[in-house]
């Protein structure tokens, strides 16, 4: 399993990265954590002529809470999130997800941004970021734009990013009182992709009613999915059992899984229901504790 030959670049700043992307277009591939790309290259499923290694660029590793956001640089490793006390205290959905991605060694290398732009519907960050309503900062030579997470995924392994664009930042709203989230992942074993994953994030207002809700689904469609109707079921409710069950049913309806070795369509659809219920119950508990 030897990759095809390629030219390797290790730029020392982002402008240099963008210039290389401009120059090489589709021929270039950004190397982040490499935990999906390198195996794909070993199988020669990916044969980029140019590899642009963005490891070591400090700007891409930004990881801090400021100006009302939690900023997660695209090169922040899964393990960094899993090991962060700030995240454990204030962003339990992130923490939940980071602890179940792949395996501990892969988490030491794999990155949030790399995983997101890989756009594997079975990747865990997509649904988590949907639940958080994350925004991406996307740069190209001479320009920058903000991309809502809902506009990132086009289909399996395909994003709306242009070949000359680089994600330079990911941000989610800073945690506030009354927020809680959780990630539920059903996997066959550690290191497996999700059979089904569900990310939920809710905000309880002072009156105990749900004032915001985000629900993202993993591995049950061509992309990570937002369960918008399920979110609607929760909004304005008291997050009581009936509302959660109704949301769980709506989430299952929003999914369009395909049968594979992990299970049948109907199994996966029902797992969306079961896991949504579990994630929401944990989210509510956490939100109440954070009120």
């Amino acid at each position: 399993m030897i990759p095809a030959a390629f030219d390797y670049h290790h730029p020392s700043d982002i402008d240099e990265v963008l210039a290389l992307l401009d120059e090489h277009g589709w021929e270039a591939k950004i190397l982040a954590g490499g935990q999906s790309l390198i195996p794909a290259m070993r199988f020669r499923l990916a044969e980029p002529g140019t590899v642009v290694d963005v490891n070591g660029l400090a700007e891409l590793e930004r990881f801090e809470e400021s100006d009302g956001f939690l900023h997660i640089g695209p090169m922040v490793r899964h393990a960094t999130i899993a090991g962060s006390e700030l995240v454990r205290d204030r962003y339990p959905l992130l923490s939940d997800a980071a602890e179940v991605i792949a395996d501990p060694l892969v988490r030491n290398r794999g990155t949030v941004g790399g995983s997101l732009v890989h756009a594997d519907p079975a990747g865990d960050w997509g649904s988590v970021m949907l639940a958080y309503r994350a925004e991406l900062t996307v740069r190209r030579a001479g320009g920058e734009r903000t991309l809502p997470i809902d506009e990132l995924f086009l289909t399996t392994f395909v994003t709306s990013l242009e070949p000359n664009e680089l994600v330079t930042g990911i941000r989610i709203p800073a945690a506030s009182d009354g927020e809680g989230g959780a990630y539920e992942k059903l996997e066959r074993k550690v290191g497996d992709f999700a059979t089904v994953g569900v990310a939920t994030q809710i905000t309880l207002a002072d009156d105990g009613k749900v004032s915001a809700a985000g629900i993202g689904l993993t591995a049950v469609g061509a992309t990570s999915l937002r369960a918008a109707a399920a979110e609607g079921e929760l909004l304005g409710s008291g997050a009581e059992a009936a509302a959660i069950e109704a949301a769980a049913v709506k989430a299952a309806e929003a999914s369009s899984p395909t049968a594979d070795t992990r299970g049948s369509e109907e199994y996966k659809r029902d797992m969306v229901r079961v896991l949504t219920g579990r994630a929401l119950r944990r989210s509510v508990d956490r939100a109440r504790a954070a009120s």
Partner: peptide, 27 residues
């Protein structure tokens, strides 16, 4: 968890450790 399976074309479904599962210390 272990099964070597084939589709109707005789293609093996997952000839790697992503599909052919080896339990870890956790399971």
């Amino acid at each position: 968890m272990q099964l070597i399976d084939f589709d109707e074309n005789g293609s093996m479904i997952g000839s790697n450790f992503m599909e052919y599962l080896i339990p870890t210390a956790v399971e």
